[in-house]
Amino acid sequence: MGGNGDNGVILEVKHLKKHFPLRRGVLFTKVEAWNHAVDDISFTVRKGETLGLVGESGCGKTTAGRTIIRLYAPTSGSVTFEGRDVFKLQAEDLRAMRRRIQMIFQDPYASLNPRMTVGDIVGEPLDIHGLAKNSARRDRIHELLRMVGLNAEHANRFPHEFSGGQRQRIGVARALAVDPSFIICDEPISALDVSIQAQVVNMLQELQGRLGLTYLLIAHDLAMVKHISNRVAVMYLGKIMEIADSFDLYKHPLHPYTKALLSAIPIPDPIVERERRRIILEGDVPSPLNPPSGCRFRTRCALVGDDCKEVQPELLDVGGGHRVACHRVK
């Protein structure tokens, strides 16, 4: 199903920008400033892989995910999914695309309608896309619930009867209902307790193997992203700073921001922890309303030079698909 791009690329994002207007005035007609939430990012995702998109709050990772499936109208740029330009799709074609790309949300408490039964939540996409009716619909719902480790009997219950981990499973079943090939997981486990996180992660990995899914994983927990992803892209203030194979990124981080981010993550081992040197970044992330000129990270970077202020570094390949945007990396 669907046209495949060449060399297994399922999604290609090129120069994607999403700027939100900050309005004021009585009728909010005057645009006071622009929030540069996502500012010219490009990357590709290959079929069957997991690409992790990491960064701190406000770096634009969620906006990027939502713009890709046109939950937000893009400012500029292009997204090609299974060989078709997502931003040019109209009505029917757009709906067909949304069957192929689904999303799992962070908060399993807010993303399920409390007045619908689990069966109806999981069945709603089937109705919208006209995929199954009556007994076929019921069978499909039961099959989906079993796929995510719940029982068929759960279909008649309401979301409040479930724990956080189980609710996240319901969200996954809903996403799988339309048989997607690509799932955007926006912080799928960060609202869950530690012992439950591993259950959900293992389930996502099993489903990926079984159904041949491709994931774009948006998260801030770098240890978990490293565990799940094949490749990782690090975002800062709307831009991608570094992108590499996940083990390569953790073993040989090149961008000063990536280095600081990795060093900040505590390791649950007192002996290792005592030996580690932490790079403490000064201050806070600048406002995306008025991002620094040149390199976005220069205001907090220890290696900053004159060129960083003037020229925006490009995301350049340093070998083996490891790309980094920094003037200091040669």
């Binding site: 996180q197 591993a198 259950q199 992660v201 978990m224 490293k226 565990h227």
Partner: peptide, 19 residues
């Protein structure tokens, strides 16, 4: 608790063992 979270300094991918 210790085994259900991945460690950043892990050198290989190991299946997480959930509780």
């Amino acid at each position: 608790l210790l085994k259900s979270v991945p460690r950043l300094d892990a050198l290989e991918k190991r299946r997480l063992v959930p509780i």
